[in-house]
Protein backbone atom coordinates (compact mmCIF):
# COMPACT_ATOMS: atom_id res chain seq x y z
CA UNK A 1 0.00 0.00 0.00
CA UNK A 2 2.79 2.36 0.96
CA UNK A 3 4.61 1.48 -2.20
CA UNK A 4 1.55 2.23 -4.28
CA UNK A 5 1.06 5.56 -2.52
CA UNK A 6 4.70 6.40 -3.06
CA UNK A 7 4.43 5.54 -6.73
CA UNK A 8 1.23 7.51 -7.13
CA UNK A 9 2.98 10.54 -5.68
CA UNK A 10 5.82 10.10 -8.14
CA UNK A 11 3.26 9.74 -10.89
CA UNK A 12 1.63 13.02 -9.96
CA UNK A 13 5.02 14.73 -10.02
CA UNK A 14 5.84 13.29 -13.43
CA UNK A 15 2.33 14.03 -14.66
CA UNK A 16 2.61 17.65 -13.62
CA UNK A 17 5.61 18.12 -15.89
CA UNK A 18 3.74 16.36 -18.71
CA UNK A 19 0.84 18.70 -18.07
CA UNK A 20 3.05 21.77 -18.28
CA UNK A 21 4.54 20.63 -21.58
CA UNK A 22 1.14 19.66 -22.97
CA UNK A 23 -0.62 22.87 -21.93
CA UNK A 24 1.76 24.88 -24.12
CA UNK A 25 1.27 22.46 -26.97
CA UNK A 26 -2.48 22.73 -26.50
CA UNK A 27 -2.37 26.52 -26.30
CA UNK A 28 -0.58 26.78 -29.64
CA UNK A 29 -2.90 24.29 -31.25
CA UNK A 30 -5.96 26.05 -29.88
CA UNK A 31 -4.90 29.44 -31.11
CA UNK A 32 -2.95 28.74 -34.29
CA UNK A 33 -4.14 25.29 -35.31
CA UNK A 34 -0.52 24.14 -35.40
CA UNK A 35 0.94 21.01 -33.82
CA UNK A 36 4.35 22.33 -32.86
CA UNK A 37 6.79 19.47 -33.09
CA UNK A 38 9.67 21.65 -31.84
CA UNK A 39 7.89 22.20 -28.53
CA UNK A 40 9.85 19.40 -26.84
CA UNK A 41 13.13 21.02 -27.83
CA UNK A 42 12.13 24.17 -25.97
CA UNK A 43 11.69 21.99 -22.90
CA UNK A 44 15.11 20.44 -23.52
CA UNK A 45 16.83 23.79 -24.20
CA UNK A 46 15.38 25.27 -21.01
CA UNK A 47 17.12 22.55 -19.01
CA UNK A 48 20.40 22.85 -20.94
CA UNK A 49 20.55 26.64 -20.64
CA UNK A 50 19.97 26.38 -16.89
CA UNK A 51 22.72 23.81 -16.61
CA UNK A 52 25.06 26.03 -18.63
CA UNK A 53 24.28 29.13 -16.57
CA UNK A 54 24.84 27.31 -13.27
CA UNK A 55 28.09 25.69 -14.44
CA UNK A 56 29.66 28.51 -16.46
CA UNK A 57 28.49 31.53 -14.45
CA UNK A 58 27.95 29.95 -11.08
CA UNK A 59 24.32 31.07 -10.99
CA UNK A 60 22.00 29.32 -8.56
CA UNK A 61 19.46 26.82 -9.85
CA UNK A 62 16.62 29.27 -9.25
CA UNK A 63 18.25 32.27 -10.96
CA UNK A 64 19.63 30.16 -13.77
CA UNK A 65 16.18 28.65 -14.27
CA UNK A 66 14.39 32.00 -14.33
CA UNK A 67 16.84 33.46 -16.83
CA UNK A 68 16.58 30.30 -18.94
CA UNK A 69 12.79 30.61 -19.06
CA UNK A 70 13.19 34.22 -20.25
CA UNK A 71 15.71 33.20 -22.90
CA UNK A 72 13.49 30.38 -24.16
CA UNK A 73 10.58 32.80 -24.46
CA UNK A 74 12.76 35.00 -26.67
CA UNK A 75 13.96 31.98 -28.66
CA UNK A 76 10.31 30.98 -29.16
CA UNK A 77 9.47 34.46 -30.47
CA UNK A 78 12.27 34.15 -33.00
CA UNK A 79 11.36 30.62 -34.08
CA UNK A 80 7.74 31.65 -34.64
CA UNK A 81 8.75 34.74 -36.61
CA UNK A 82 11.21 32.85 -38.81
CA UNK A 83 9.78 29.38 -39.34
CA UNK A 84 6.07 29.24 -38.46
CA UNK A 85 4.39 32.63 -38.91
CA UNK A 86 5.34 33.16 -42.57
CA UNK A 87 3.83 29.83 -43.68
CA UNK A 88 0.92 29.67 -41.29
CA UNK A 89 -1.84 30.34 -43.79
CA UNK A 90 -0.47 28.16 -46.53
CA UNK A 91 -1.87 24.76 -45.59
CA UNK A 92 -2.18 22.40 -42.68
CA UNK A 93 1.06 20.49 -43.24
CA UNK A 94 3.60 23.27 -43.86
CA UNK A 95 3.88 24.63 -40.31
CA UNK A 96 3.94 21.10 -38.91
CA UNK A 97 6.77 20.04 -41.22
CA UNK A 98 8.62 23.25 -40.55
CA UNK A 99 8.37 22.68 -36.79
CA UNK A 100 9.56 19.11 -37.32
CA UNK A 101 12.65 20.45 -39.10
CA UNK A 102 13.18 22.96 -36.29
CA UNK A 103 13.05 20.20 -33.73
CA UNK A 104 15.84 18.26 -35.44
CA UNK A 105 17.95 21.37 -35.98
CA UNK A 106 17.66 22.39 -32.33
CA UNK A 107 18.44 18.91 -31.01
CA UNK A 108 21.51 18.70 -33.22
CA UNK A 109 22.62 22.16 -32.26
CA UNK A 110 22.51 21.25 -28.56
CA UNK A 111 24.34 17.99 -29.26
CA UNK A 112 27.02 19.93 -31.15
CA UNK A 113 27.49 22.41 -28.32
CA UNK A 114 27.13 20.14 -25.27
CA UNK A 115 27.84 16.66 -26.66
CA UNK A 116 25.62 13.59 -26.69
CA UNK A 117 26.59 12.35 -23.23
CA UNK A 118 24.00 12.67 -20.49
CA UNK A 119 24.41 15.71 -18.25
CA UNK A 120 23.21 16.48 -14.76
CA UNK A 121 21.44 19.58 -13.52
CA UNK A 122 21.67 19.50 -9.73
CA UNK A 123 19.09 21.33 -7.67
CA UNK A 124 19.44 22.56 -4.08
CA UNK A 125 15.98 21.15 -3.36
CA UNK A 126 16.84 17.48 -3.58
CA UNK A 127 16.69 17.03 0.16
CA UNK A 128 14.44 14.10 1.04
CA UNK A 129 11.60 14.65 3.47
CA UNK A 130 9.76 11.78 5.05
CA UNK A 131 6.06 12.17 5.71
CA UNK A 132 4.34 9.13 7.25
CA UNK A 133 6.58 6.67 5.45
CA UNK A 134 6.29 8.55 2.16
CA UNK A 135 9.60 9.79 0.78
CA UNK A 136 9.20 13.21 -0.83
CA UNK A 137 11.85 15.67 -1.88
CA UNK A 138 11.56 19.41 -1.88
CA UNK A 139 12.12 19.32 -5.62
CA UNK A 140 9.10 17.10 -6.15
CA UNK A 141 6.95 19.33 -3.98
CA UNK A 142 8.31 22.32 -5.91
CA UNK A 143 7.20 20.69 -9.15
CA UNK A 144 3.67 20.20 -7.86
CA UNK A 145 3.40 23.69 -6.38
CA UNK A 146 4.89 25.39 -9.44
CA UNK A 147 2.71 23.32 -11.74
CA UNK A 148 -0.49 24.26 -9.93
CA UNK A 149 0.51 27.92 -9.61
CA UNK A 150 1.47 28.24 -13.26
CA UNK A 151 -1.67 26.56 -14.55
CA UNK A 152 -3.90 28.70 -12.32
CA UNK A 153 -2.05 31.80 -13.47
CA UNK A 154 -2.33 30.78 -17.11
CA UNK A 155 -6.06 30.21 -16.78
CA UNK A 156 -6.46 33.57 -15.11
CA UNK A 157 -4.43 35.30 -17.81
CA UNK A 158 -6.50 33.71 -20.56
CA UNK A 159 -9.80 34.40 -18.83
CA UNK A 160 -9.39 37.92 -17.56
CA UNK A 161 -6.48 39.85 -19.00
CA UNK A 162 -6.34 41.88 -22.19
CA UNK A 163 -3.73 39.60 -23.76
CA UNK A 164 -5.90 36.61 -22.82
CA UNK A 165 -8.92 38.11 -24.53
CA UNK A 166 -6.81 38.89 -27.57
CA UNK A 167 -5.55 35.29 -27.66
CA UNK A 168 -9.08 33.89 -27.39
CA UNK A 169 -10.50 36.31 -29.94
CA UNK A 170 -7.80 35.38 -32.44
CA UNK A 171 -8.41 31.68 -31.94
CA UNK A 172 -12.19 32.06 -32.39
CA UNK A 173 -12.33 34.33 -35.41
CA UNK A 174 -9.21 35.74 -37.06
CA UNK A 175 -11.16 37.94 -39.46
CA UNK A 176 -13.15 39.54 -36.68
CA UNK A 177 -9.99 39.88 -34.62
CA UNK A 178 -8.29 41.86 -37.35
CA UNK A 179 -11.39 44.05 -37.69
CA UNK A 180 -11.23 45.05 -34.03
CA UNK A 181 -7.58 45.97 -34.49
CA UNK A 182 -5.78 42.82 -33.38
CA UNK A 183 -2.53 42.11 -35.18
CA UNK A 184 -2.87 38.34 -35.42
CA UNK A 185 0.73 37.61 -36.33
CA UNK A 186 1.89 39.39 -33.19
CA UNK A 187 -0.68 37.42 -31.19
CA UNK A 188 0.75 34.17 -32.56
CA UNK A 189 4.19 35.27 -31.49
CA UNK A 190 2.93 35.86 -27.93
CA UNK A 191 1.25 32.47 -27.88
CA UNK A 192 4.49 30.82 -28.94
CA UNK A 193 6.40 32.72 -26.29
CA UNK A 194 4.02 31.71 -23.50
CA UNK A 195 4.04 28.08 -24.64
CA UNK A 196 7.84 28.05 -24.93
CA UNK A 197 8.16 29.46 -21.43
CA UNK A 198 5.89 26.71 -20.06
CA UNK A 199 7.93 24.04 -21.84
CA UNK A 200 11.20 25.44 -20.53
CA UNK A 201 9.84 25.65 -16.99
CA UNK A 202 8.77 22.05 -17.18
CA UNK A 203 12.19 20.92 -18.39
CA UNK A 204 14.00 22.91 -15.72
CA UNK A 205 11.80 21.50 -12.96
CA UNK A 206 12.09 17.90 -14.07
CA UNK A 207 15.79 17.98 -15.04
CA UNK A 208 17.21 17.40 -11.54
CA UNK A 209 15.26 14.11 -11.35
CA UNK A 210 16.55 12.79 -14.68
CA UNK A 211 19.55 12.98 -16.99
CA UNK A 212 19.80 15.64 -19.69
CA UNK A 213 20.43 14.50 -23.21
CA UNK A 214 19.83 16.27 -26.53
CA UNK A 215 17.02 13.94 -27.62
CA UNK A 216 15.01 14.33 -24.42
CA UNK A 217 12.76 16.79 -26.26
CA UNK A 218 11.40 14.23 -28.68
CA UNK A 219 10.59 11.87 -25.80
CA UNK A 220 8.75 14.71 -24.08
CA UNK A 221 6.83 15.77 -27.16
CA UNK A 222 5.46 12.27 -27.70
CA UNK A 223 4.22 12.30 -24.11
CA UNK A 224 2.86 15.76 -24.78
CA UNK A 225 0.90 14.53 -27.81
CA UNK A 226 -0.56 11.63 -25.82
CA UNK A 227 -1.60 13.99 -23.03
CA UNK A 228 -3.13 16.48 -25.46
CA UNK A 229 -5.15 13.74 -27.14
CA UNK A 230 -6.15 12.42 -23.74
CA UNK A 231 -7.19 15.79 -22.38
CA UNK A 232 -8.71 17.19 -25.56
CA UNK A 233 -7.00 19.43 -28.10
CA UNK A 234 -6.98 23.09 -27.20
CA UNK A 235 -8.02 22.61 -23.58
CA UNK A 236 -5.51 23.78 -20.99
CA UNK A 237 -7.22 22.22 -17.98
CA UNK A 238 -7.58 19.05 -20.04
CA UNK A 239 -3.83 19.07 -20.64
CA UNK A 240 -3.10 19.21 -16.93
CA UNK A 241 -5.58 16.50 -15.99
CA UNK A 242 -4.41 14.39 -18.93
CA UNK A 243 -0.82 14.86 -17.76
CA UNK A 244 -1.65 13.72 -14.24
CA UNK A 245 -3.53 10.69 -15.56
CA UNK A 246 -0.71 9.64 -17.85
CA UNK A 247 1.94 10.17 -15.19
CA UNK A 248 -0.01 8.05 -12.69
CA UNK A 249 -0.80 5.38 -15.26
CA UNK A 250 2.89 5.12 -16.14
CA UNK A 251 4.18 4.64 -12.61
CA UNK A 252 1.42 2.22 -11.70
CA UNK A 253 2.19 0.18 -14.80
CA UNK A 254 5.88 0.23 -13.92
CA UNK A 255 5.12 -0.93 -10.38
CA UNK A 256 3.00 -3.90 -11.39
CA UNK A 257 4.44 -4.95 -14.74
CA UNK A 258 8.02 -3.71 -14.56
CA UNK A 259 9.50 -0.48 -15.86
CA UNK A 260 9.85 -1.92 -19.36
CA UNK A 261 6.08 -1.44 -19.77
CA UNK A 262 6.04 2.12 -18.48
CA UNK A 263 6.15 3.84 -21.86
CA UNK A 264 3.83 1.37 -23.54
CA UNK A 265 0.80 2.30 -21.48
CA UNK A 266 0.75 5.80 -22.99
CA UNK A 267 0.44 4.47 -26.51
CA UNK A 268 -2.30 2.07 -25.50
CA UNK A 269 -4.19 4.97 -23.93
CA UNK A 270 -3.56 7.04 -27.08
CA UNK A 271 -5.08 4.45 -29.39
CA UNK A 272 -7.96 3.72 -27.03
CA UNK A 273 -8.86 7.40 -26.76
CA UNK A 274 -8.62 7.89 -30.52
CA UNK A 275 -11.02 5.01 -31.06
CA UNK A 276 -13.57 5.61 -28.28
CA UNK A 277 -13.34 9.28 -27.37
CA UNK A 278 -11.60 11.17 -30.20
CA UNK A 279 -12.44 14.57 -28.69
CA UNK A 280 -10.46 13.63 -25.59
CA UNK A 281 -11.80 13.32 -22.07
CA UNK A 282 -12.34 17.06 -21.77
CA UNK A 283 -12.55 17.94 -25.45
CA UNK A 284 -13.41 21.38 -26.71
CA UNK A 285 -16.26 22.29 -24.40
CA UNK A 286 -13.92 24.06 -22.03
CA UNK A 287 -13.87 27.86 -21.75
Amino acid sequence: MDLLLQQLFNGVVLGMTYGLVASGLSLIFGIMGVLNFAHGELYMIGAYITMFLTKAYGLSYVWGGLIAVGLVVIISFVLERVAIGPILNRDYMSPFLSSFALSIILANLIQYVFGANPKRLPSPFEIPIEVKGLILTQQKILIIVCGIAVILALNLVIKSTKIGKILRATSQNVTAASLVGINSSRTYMYAFGIAGGLAALSGILLAPLINLYPTMGSTAIIKGFIVVVLGGLGSISGAVIGGLLLGSAEVITATFFGSGWKDVVGYIILIAILIWKPTGLFGKTSD
Binding site: K162, K165, I166, R168, A169, Q172, N173, T175, A176, A177, L179, V180, G181, I182, D287
Partner: peptide, 25 residues
Protein backbone atom coordinates in the same frame (compact mmCIF):
# COMPACT_ATOMS: atom_id res chain seq x y z
CA UNK B 1 -15.36 50.23 -38.53
CA UNK B 2 -16.45 47.34 -40.73
CA UNK B 3 -19.53 45.48 -39.54
CA UNK B 4 -19.14 42.42 -41.69
CA UNK B 5 -21.59 40.19 -43.47
CA UNK B 6 -22.60 37.25 -41.27
CA UNK B 7 -21.79 39.11 -38.04
CA UNK B 8 -18.45 37.44 -37.38
CA UNK B 9 -18.65 37.52 -33.61
CA UNK B 10 -16.35 35.78 -31.16
CA UNK B 11 -18.76 32.91 -30.50
CA UNK B 12 -17.32 31.53 -27.26
CA UNK B 13 -16.94 34.94 -25.66
CA UNK B 14 -19.61 36.83 -23.79
CA UNK B 15 -21.55 39.75 -25.22
CA UNK B 16 -19.65 42.06 -22.88
CA UNK B 17 -16.30 40.66 -24.02
CA UNK B 18 -17.27 41.04 -27.66
CA UNK B 19 -18.13 44.68 -27.08
CA UNK B 20 -15.02 45.25 -25.02
CA UNK B 21 -12.86 43.91 -27.83
CA UNK B 22 -14.56 46.39 -30.15
CA UNK B 23 -13.04 49.10 -27.99
CA UNK B 24 -9.55 47.64 -28.17
CA UNK B 25 -8.24 50.49 -30.35
Amino acid sequence: AHIPEGRQLFPEMTVAENLELGGLV
